[in-house]
Each structure stands twice: as C-alpha cells, then as structure tokens.
Amino acid sequence: MKSLLDQEFTDGNIVIAKTEDLLNWARLSSLWQLGFGLACCAIEMMATSASHYDFDRFGVIPRPSPRQADIIIISGTVTLKMATRIKRLFEQMPEPKYIISMGSCSNCGGPYWQHGYHVLKGIDRVIPVDVYVPGCPPRPEALLEGLLKLQEKVRNESLVKKTL
C-alpha cells in the first residue's frame, strides 16, 4: 500500500488543503539540517547557528546523520572528490529534503571557476538546489534570508498534483 504522502491527489478539497497547511507548517518550522561544513562558508554557518544569530529559533538544528535531516546546506567549495560523497549523503536523506547552496563556490565554482581543476562548478550539477545564497562567504543574515526563502517555498507546497 502506498503511504499517504506518496499518493498524488488530482483535485483539492478543504480537507486536503488544511492537511497540507498543517504539514507545511510543521515542516517549515523544524527544518533540521545535516551538520555538514565544507570550507570557509561553514564558519559563517556555525556563526549563524551560534547564539548571536540563533538558527535554532527557526527550528534549524544540526543533526549528525542524514537519516534525521531535512535540509543540507552546501557550505563551501565542492571538490570533485567530495561531490560523490555529497550526492550519497543527499540520497540518504529521507523525503522531503531541501538543499541550500551557500556561497559562490557551491553556486557556480566561485573563484575556482577557471583554473580550479579539482572543483565542481556548481553543486547543481550533482543535486537539485532549492535556494542559492550568494556571497563569498555570505553573512549570517544572508543565510537566514535564504532559509526564510526556503520556508516560503515549503509553505507553498501542495499535495495536489499540478496540472499544466
């Protein structure tokens, strides 16, 4: 039997609308992140988690295992060697899962875009990205803004199958 959230509804009604409101609210208020730092952006990410900026007030708690995580913040330079690992970690996260690409390096290669023989030019070549946060590295406020954008995205999700 397919579980409830694996089904796709063709038309919405009040029950489905209210259910998805509840689900979306629950999801966006507890976006647990996979504790995963790659480079200097990770320092900013840690600063965001720390008391001054307090990621926790948005429900973002670092988790040690991808099995318990909802978002992964790609914070830093993604080398080709690391990209395969990131792909596996992303695939080991349970649905629904979201990705914030933080900083120029993971957005597009950043300063390594030309001569970086070892750098993946954009994490979106490997895994689908929801929010790009520009900056080198982005300030904690920018990361918070990225998270708010992601929450907006989660808030607008729907159980009803979209018709084109």
Partner: peptide, 21 residues
C-alpha cells in the same frame, strides 16, 4: 507514521551511513 510518511527507498538510501564513503 508508517501510514503517512513518504517512503521511497533506494539502494543508496538503504546503504550503511559512513559519512558518504
């Protein structure tokens, strides 16, 4: 949770977690 949660197991997902290695 068994009834509600999305369950989409793949080979990669069921692998032992060893930090991506």
């Amino acid at each position: 949770s068994k009834l509600i949660r999305p369950a989409r197991p793949t080979k990669e997902k069921l692998l032992t977690y060893e930090c991506g290695e």
